[in-house]
Structure formats: C-alpha cells, structure tokens
Amino acid sequence: MNIFRLCGDLSHLLAILLLLFKIWKTRSCAGISGKTQLLFTIVYTARYLDLFTSFVSVYNSVMKIVFLTASYGTLYLMFYKFKPTYDHNHDSFRILYLIVPALVLSFIIVHVYTVMEILWTFSIYLEAVAIMPQLFMVSRTGEAETITSHYLFALGSYRALYILNWIYRYYTEDFLDWITIMAGIVQTILYCDFFYLYITKVLKGKRLSLP
C-alpha cells in the first residue's frame, strides 16, 4: 500500500458514494447511464469472486464488499425504486460492443488459463471501457449535473492515481502487471476530454455543458 493507491481507492469509494448520494437525495437518476452502472456491476462481480478463494487483507475484503454492495444498490435504485426517472432514451450505447471484445481479449491476453483468472482479466478490460455509455450519454444530452461531474471526476482520478501507484510499485518492489497497466492507461485516456471540461468549467462554478 502506498499513498497513490490509497488516494486512488478513496477516490473510487468517493465516486461510488457520491453517485448513491445524488440518486438518493434528488430521488432521481436522471443523467446517469444505467448501462455504465450495469457494466461496473459486472466488473466488480467478475473480479471480486476471489473474495471466496483468496484473502489479501481486511482492508481489501471490506472495500470489495462495499463496492459490490454499492453497485448492486445503485442498480436497485436505478432500475426499481426510481425507475421512472431513468432517462433510457439517451442511454443508447450498445454495451455488447464492449462486453464481447473484452471477453474475447481476456481469452487471448491473460496471465494464466484458469476460470478465475480469465474472469479477473475480463473485469480489467471491461472496466477500462465501462464509462463509455455514460460519456456517450453526456455527449448526447450535452450536459451533466454538477454532482454527476464530481462523480465522473472522482471515478476518472481513481485509475489515474493507480497509474502513479504502478510506477511507484515498479521502482520499489519490481511489481509489473502489463494487463492492468495497459487497461488502466486506456481507461484514463477516455476521461481526458471530460477532465478538461471539468477543470475549465465545473471548477469555475459553471455547469458542464458542451458547445
């Protein structure tokens, strides 16, 4: 554990809690992509099956359980409790275009051919692109609520901080995992456009709207 990873994890946690808070407080999931949330739930489920097979630390296990619970909770709020507020007309990205390539790639580039390892790899590849339906939705509606922008910023920062963590781990403990590194870089690049808008607009008190 180093400062970059801890900040990354906290940023990730903050993002997930911010989203739940927004939906609960406004009693609406307008502007949130249910497809991205579904993809994240698939990601956590595929990756954290190792809760049953390997133990790293109490910290890791607790975080995994929190991420899983929060993601299923978000789906419950979006597709059941506040379903009428879900803006499905603007949430039209085809997620099979993300799931199928991620699945195929996880059979091609994987460390070890075991079911658990392929599921883990699939979750890494899928996570890298899971935000695309949400970014697509923002580009279609041309705007995002401020709290949604904070959510996206925290979620994007998490993987960027993980990249710093991997650089640090490479120098301090010779740790090198090309699968997570390449996927993490792709994931962070996808947010770059949004980061620019966030810094130039949201941080100056303006609403995030596209020209």
């Binding site: 630390s57 975080m63 883990w120």
Partner: peptide
C-alpha cells in the same frame, strides 16, 4: 501445476 496469481489491488 497451475499457478495461482494473487491480485492484491482492487
């Protein structure tokens, strides 16, 4: 033997 990889990150 199949190597088990311990993924220690989240």
């Amino acid at each position: 033997p199949v190597t088990e990889i311990d993924h220690d990150e989240l």
